[in-house]
């Protein structure tokens, strides 16, 4: 940075504008457009009395299966809706619809994350689905990816990051942003713990170093272990 004028030009330069050349200081985040859209979404969600959860994880951590089981047990108690993000196919939305719950599939065309504008469109599409106007709890299943989705606020009330046992307990240290911006850390597929070198202690410790306020739930949809804890977490959010 130039000490004389505070400008950030690397080369030697004149401090007055020469000819038609103009230097403009901007100081605006490239995330600002998305943040503004996310604020609009949040207002819209609040106005409709929706509790919204943004689910972030790698592909294959068991998000859709977790949702299926959640709908099975909680579906009669709380009206659930789902926005699915996948690069291709309607498959996840079809799995959710098969459970009798309104679902919309967003296929962001090769993009590695959902952004607030896409979710805004998704919400309007969801409203056109059967039962879509009468939702209390909305899950947004983000594109499977521990990196990019962490940088985009969707206007959600809660962000959860899921990590399955086969992925390894070093992931919180390697992907700090996903863990640093979430409120819930769900360790999934814990029925596989005997077969993998996964340290619950390491995963929890590393995640808490990045984010001391992070709540952790260990859960298996196969054995049912920890599943009640997950349901209670959802019930608490919807009761608030």
């Amino acid at each position: 940075m130039c000490d004389a004028c505070g400008c950030v030009h690397e080369d030697n330069h004149e401090h007055q504008e020469s000819g038609t050349r103009k230097r403009v200081d901007v100081h605006e985040s490239l995330f600002e457009a998305n943040r503004a859209k996310a604020r609009e979404n949040r207002k819209h969600f609040d106005g409709r009395g929706l509790v919204v959860i943004n689910m972030i994880s790698s592909p294959g951590s068991g998000k859709t299966t977790l949702l299926e089981k959640t709908i099975d047990t909680l579906g009669n108690e709380i009206r659930i809706g789902v926005i699915e993000g996948d690069i291709e196919t309607e498959r996840d939305a079809e799995r959710i619809r098969a459970k009798g719950v309104p679902a919309v599939q967003l296929t962001p065309g090769g993009a590695c994350h959902l952004d607030a504008a896409q979710v805004h469109r998704g919400l309007h599409l969801l409203e056109q689905e059967r039962g879509g106007e009468d939702i209390r709890l909305l899950f947004i299943e983000n594109v499977g990816n521990l990196v990019c989705p962490a940088a985009f606020d969707l206007g959600e009330h809660q962000r959860m990051v899921a990590l399955s046992v086969p992925e390894g307990s070093d992931k919180p240290a390697k992907y700090p942003k996903a863990f640093g911006t979430s409120q819930l850390f769900l360790i999934s597929k814990t029925d596989l713990l005997p077969y993998f070198d996964f340290s619950l202690e390491e995963a929890r410790r590393e995640a808490l170093l990045i984010n001391p306020d992070l709540e952790t739930i260990e859960c298996s949809t196969v054995s049912g272990e920890g599943f009640d804890q997950w349901l209670d977490w959802l019930r608490r959010l919807c009761a608030a």
């Binding site: 038609t20 103009k22 230097r23 403009v24 901007v26 100081h27 605006e28 985040s29 490239l30 995330f31």
Partner: peptide, 12 residues
């Protein structure tokens, strides 16, 4: 810092 900021633009 966890942001991406447009600081300055030179144009003519």
């Amino acid at each position: 810092a966890d942001d991406v900021v447009l600081r300055q633009v030179e144009m003519e």
